[in-house]
Design a protein around this nucleic acid. Sequence first.
RNA 1: GGUCUGGUGGCAGAAUGGUGAUGCAGCGGACUGCAAAUCCGCGAAUGUGGGUUCGAUUCCCGCCCAGACCUCCA
Length: 456
Amino acid sequence: MPHSHLPPHPVLSLHDSQSRATVPFTPIDPAHVKVYYCGPTVYDLAHIGNLRAMLTADVLVRLLRHVYPRVTFVRNITDVDDKITARARANGEDIGSLTQRTTEEFHQDLASMNVLPPDIEPRATHNIGEMQAMIARLIENGHAYEAEGHVLFSVGSFPSYGALSGRNPEELEAGARVEVAPYKKAPGDFVLWKPSDADQPGWDSPWGRGRPGWHIECSAMSHRYLGDSFDIHGGGSDLLFPHHENERAQSLCCFPHGKFANYWVHNAMLLVEGEKMSKSLGNFLTIRDVLAQAPAEALRLLLLGAHYRSTLNYTQAGLQEARKTLDRFYRALAAGPVPETDVPEGVMQALADDLNTPKAIAELHALAAQALAGDRQAAGALKAGAGMLGLLQGDPEQWFKGDASDEDTAIEALINERLVARKARDFAKADALRDQLQAQGIVLEDTKDGTSWRRA
RNA sequence: GGUCUGGUGGCAGAAUGGUGAUGCAGCGGACUGCAAAUCCGCGAAUGUGGGUUCGAUUCCCGCCCAGACCUCCA
């Protein structure tokens, strides 16, 4: 059971949405920590709001891996959904090709953001059997019923329904803004299985050809890969209700001896230039939109610059600021050798305190200042600490100059020409050459050791 | 309408019952032929009205404002 190399507990605290408090994190089994996150519905490119959730999970998992010997991180792909069906139809494309392509794009985008892949990435369509088994069991248990080809979860059958999101079913009825389907026994009841037309994706089932409701897939996949009880379940705060509430209800009713998720982690939403990101405002930014304007690492730093539970205002100015910060950090690394170092205590403490990434970044600023003052140990600590955030692992040369290209020799030739002019004290010519490079986006820095350059 | 978050300098963004981090921007200076980078220094903030307290930005209540959720959005 207890391993001698396991850390003393607790080492980190997390804000648990269910208890609405920041609490010490105690794993069910410290030798094996289990995390489930809701992944994307693959019908379109991932946007920077999706990214924020993936990034929060990434930092959480990096931290857990640093502390615990084994972590299993499961993040699903939702590849059956009416939005997918609709988009495929609009594109004149078949569903399989849409979901395949979108999944690949998702993987590419996250890889470019240095978000580590999950250990297991189940697809909903590969887990229909598990979902059907759960649904059958819920019917047997009296927690679900059939009506007009649908199978519905009976919210009234689960006394603690609403405990996660802090709601009660009566309140929900009062404010419901969607008309209630006539076949529901109670307005809060939600679909586990629904009938499919011939032109909709469907699977044979005891309740006829149909497709799963949204919530059941995460219950089925988390159970299959993590069991009755696991440590952390996460996602965006917009998933808290109804998605996570419903997942919890299904899972606990289906597996009453389990505890489902012990801790719930939810990240806050994103604004774009002070406004809610929405299609109607036309300010919907995909990861690719942003990467066309700035390095991925700048976006990563920008998003980690706010605590995950507070609303983050994404701005162009902020993106440029993040980029300049990375210039400074990489300069600190490039100033000399970078020894292998442990993750500095300040960074660990910040992250262990409910993933306080802004505070961790403030620690990095202090280390960068020390490194620039000549403390190479601090440079090592800067790199190690930034590594916990998935930052600063690149080559500084690459950061400043980009991929080596034929252009580089031309740039260096101009720099040499300028040096000759400077030695001759022909500053007019030297400055003209510098301006010429500036116009190409090349910034020069004269040091006592010579002239270095970087792309602006 | 209901539930829940949150309002900190010009901007971004931490923290805290007892003199409010950090970064960007700004200003002054050093360095530089001039820049760039670096360094030194400066100014600058707790939405509003009450309450609790020796002391509130922090805890409590009202108000204003913003955001999220209220049946398939990260």
